[in-house]
Amino acid sequence: EVTIKANLIFANGSTQTAEFKGTFEKATSEAYAYADTLKKDNGEYTVDVADKGYTLNIKFAG
């Protein structure tokens, strides 16, 4: 089991951190699915992958 950390960075400057656990593939998939649910209210997003994929910096356009 691994932990994927998602740093969520919103257009208004606020930030939030979420963690997803499971296999690497499952946790990564859940992180992207979570970002997709936030897209409606926060706009499109870009992802900067860090720490060999264990950290995702997800920035929303607003």
Rank of each mutant, 00 (worst) to 15 (best):
K52S: 15
Y34N: 03
Y54R: 06
A18F: 12
E25Q: 06
F60H: 01
K39C: 04
V49P: 07
L8S: 02
S14N: 11
F60M: 01
D48E: 15
Y32R: 08
N57Q: 09
E30T: 12
T23Y: 15
T23C: 04
T23N: 12
I9V: 14
K39P: 01
S29D: 11
L8E: 00
A50W: 10
N42D: 06
D41S: 15
G22D: 05
Q16G: 09
V2T: 10
G13D: 07
E1I: 06
Q16M: 15
A33F: 10
A27S: 05
F60Y: 13
E44V: 12
A61I: 07
T23P: 09
K26W: 14
D51R: 04
L56G: 00
T55R: 05
A50L: 14
T17W: 14
T28Q: 10
Q16C: 05
L56T: 01
L56D: 00
T46H: 09
E30F: 11
N7D: 03
V2R: 05
T3A: 07
N7F: 14
K26L: 15
S14R: 15
L56F: 05
K52V: 07
T37I: 14
E30M: 14
L56R: 01
G43R: 02
A33H: 13
A33Y: 07
T46F: 15
K59V: 11
A18G: 06
F20Y: 08
L56S: 00
F60S: 00
A27L: 01
K40Y: 09
F24L: 11
A50R: 14
V47M: 05
K21Y: 15
E1M: 07
T37Y: 09
K40I: 11
N12M: 08
Q16F: 13
F24G: 03
V49H: 07
T55A: 05
T3Y: 09
S29A: 13
T55Q: 06
F60N: 00
S29I: 10
A6T: 09
A27G: 04
A50F: 09
Y54L: 13
A6I: 15
E19A: 09
G13H: 11
T3M: 12
G62T: 12
D41G: 10
I58V: 09
E25V: 07
A31D: 00
L38M: 15
V2Q: 07
K21C: 05
F10Y: 15
A35G: 02
A31Q: 01
F20H: 02
A6W: 02
N12H: 11
A33R: 13
N7T: 13
K40C: 05
I4L: 08
T55C: 04
T37V: 12
A6Q: 03
K59N: 13
G53K: 03
K40H: 14
K59W: 08
A35W: 02
V2N: 05
K39V: 12
G22R: 01
T3G: 04
S14P: 09
I4A: 01
D36F: 04
Y54E: 04
T28F: 09
F10R: 03
T3F: 08
K26V: 13
E19L: 14
L8N: 02
K21H: 15
G22L: 01
Y32N: 03
T28M: 14
A33S: 11
E44M: 13
A33L: 10
E25S: 08
I4F: 02
N12K: 08
Q16K: 09
T15S: 13
K59M: 08
S14Q: 14
I9T: 11
D48H: 11
K59A: 08
T23K: 05
T37A: 12
F60D: 00
G62V: 09
L38R: 06
V49Y: 11
G53I: 02
I58F: 15
K5S: 09
Y45H: 02
D41E: 10
Y54Q: 06
T46V: 12
F24R: 06
V49A: 11
L8Y: 12
G53V: 02
S29R: 13
Y32T: 05
I58M: 10
N42R: 13
K5Q: 10
T37D: 08
A27C: 04
G62W: 10
A31M: 05
Q16W: 13
V47G: 02
I58Y: 07
A18H: 14
A61Q: 11
Y32P: 00
V47R: 02
T55M: 10
K21Q: 11
A6P: 00
Y34S: 02
E44F: 09
K26M: 15
D36E: 15
A33I: 11
Y45V: 02
